[in-house]
Structures are given as C-alpha cells and as structure tokens.
Design a protein around this nucleic acid. Structure first.
Length: 290
DNA sequence: ATGTCATCCTCCGGATGA
C-alpha cells in the first residue's frame, strides 16, 4: 500500500545543513519536502544540491535570495504549476522569499516562512500580520486539496511553548498572531500534528542557547495545515527530534506527515515504474537511530 | 550568561537576524 510522505523543515541555511539534509532524505524517504530558511539564491541552491537531489529523484521548486529567508519544495511525486511568493503580500520593504507553492501528487503544497515579527508593535510585527492576511486570501482562493507547511512563527496555544510566562511580551504567542493563524484554520485547514497528539508535549524549535534542546524547552511553530480532504488521509504526523540531535543541527526539527493514497486514486503514481526504481522506504545508508 | 549559530563585509571581528 503506497502512501505519500510530506515533510517540512526549517534548515537554517541549506549550505550549512547539507551534511544533515542528505542523510535525512535517505533515512526518512520523504516524497515531498518543504524547506525554509535556505538562505541561498536559486542558482546557488541548484549548484549546491541539484545533482544530489536529482539523483534521489527529486524535482525542485526554488524561491531564494542572497542572504536571508528562502524556501523550496522538493518532490518525487510530481511538481507542477509552481508559484513563488504570496499574491498581495507586503514586503519589508521589498518582497522577501517566504513562500513557494506547487502541485505535487494532486495536492497543492505551500512551503511557508512567515515573518518573525521581532517585537510586538514593531513595523516587522505589522508586516507579519499583513503577510498572514495575504496568505489567508491565497489559501482561500486556492484548490480544495491543499497543505500549507512551514515555519509559521506562531505557537498556536500556550500548550505549544515550554512556559507561557517566558513568552509574555514576546512574539509568536500574542492574540493577534494567534487570530491570524485561526483565520487559516477557519478555512478548514487542520493542524494535523496537534490533531494526532492532543495532549502531547511536542515542540519543533529549540533555541541553540543554554541547552534548550537538551532540556526540551522549545516551541511548536513549524506546522502542517491540511485541508479537509488531505487531513482525512493522515496516517501519521510527528516531529523528527532525531534530526535536532548530534553535530551541526538546525535549530528546528522536521515535521513528517504520512498520507494514505487518495480514495479516488487521483494522486497519480507514487510508485515509480520499474524503469526508474527508487529506494524503498526504510532502506537507508544510515543506522536507524532509536 | 548578552548563553548559539547563521549571515554579511569598510573582510577574520563586528553588526545584524533569529
């Protein structure tokens, strides 16, 4: 029985993360990968990883810039109708590389890097809220079979931060940010990890400083929001904490979601034809850590 | 601990972003 594995990962510089990203792809075998904070131009990304990814069967949709931001979608189940950016979104002051969308295996996939907001009340905070409003309009106008993945830079509830008191006066937890996120879920987009683990302490980001990961003092700000028809197909949804361990990790962990085949079979062939065999899920060059 | 890690450049130490 085939399924589609979708993942999202803020890699905090793909150039600095090659030694983690490629083994992770081989180990976890995602079919669709949304990346954020690639921090590379499209040409530099292609030069760095184009060959390695093509060799693993991935097509790429890239939207990067020289220094900051940058998003991508990797897919080995098709990659069509690529759109970069969010129509109507503001810049700061110029447009930033924070969104790319593509249709992969019959699903409209969005890789998102929402502005941080820096300080409540700041210009950047207003930018974050305006950007989210534009995103809402794009999702509202888009296909019904959709999944919006990425670093939303919002902790949906107080259960999504290690200590609500530690975040008083900080971004990521303020009512206007949570209201902006609620406008996305009001479109019918489900937070599939929280749906799966309603009572679990689950984070996706831990500050590099002060041993925050070791102490599990983090936040859940990397989300997978799935429209109803996709949410119904979710068979697994989890945070890959292994990828946050060891040498040279990102400060974010990947989120991985497995989807059952679409009931009417409209997702296309997810098993390549015999002429183009791909690695079987679970076969890995790396030891599978526990 | 203003704690770390990433980016850039009046370019190897400091400013900035997260």
């Amino acid at each position: 029985m085939s399924c589609v594995r979708v993942a999202t990962w803020n890699v905090n510089s793909v150039k600095q993360r090659v030694a983690r990203l490629l083994p992770w792809l081989d180990q976890r075998q995602p079919d669709v990968v949304c990346l954020q904070e690639t921090k590379l131009t499209d040409s530099a990304f292609t030069e760095l990883l184009g060959g390695e990814l093509a060799g693993r069967g991935y097509a790429m949709a890239l939207h990067g810039e020289v220094q900051w931001n940058g998003v991508a979608i990797l897919s080995r189940v098709g990659l069509d109708d690529v759109v970069t950016g969010v129509v109507g979104a503001p810049g700061f002051p110029l447009p930033e590389a924070r969104a790319v969308a593509a249709t992969c295996g019959g699903i409209r996939v969005h890789s998102l890097y929402v502005p941080n907001g820096r300080t409540p009340g700041s210009d950047h905070y207003a930018y974050k809220l305006d950007w989210l409003a534009a995103l809402r309009d794009v999702l509202a106008a888009g296909p019904e079979v959709a999944i919006a993945c990425g670093d939303l830079n919002i902790a949906p509830t107080d259960a999504d931060v290690f200590d609500p008191d530690a975040y008083i006066g900080q971004t990521h937890v303020t009512p206007p940010e949570r209201a902006a996120l609620a406008e996305l879920t009001a479109l019918g987009m489900r937070d599939v990890v929280r749906d799966r683990w309603p009572d679990r302490r689950v984070f996706t980001y831990w500050d590099y400083r002060a041993g925050m990961f070791h102490k599990d003092l983090g936040m859940r700000i990397d989300l997978v929001l799935a429209s109803g028809p996709v949410a119904e197909r979710v068979r697994a949804a989890w945070v890959d904490r292994q990828a946050r361990k060891g040498t040279g990790p990102s400060d974010h962990a990947p989120v991985i979601v497995d989807l059952d085949e679409a009931p009417d079979g409209d997702i296309g062939p997810v098993v390549p034809p015999p002429s183009a065999p791909a690695a079987k899920r679970g076969s890995t060059k790396l030891p599978q850590s526990s």
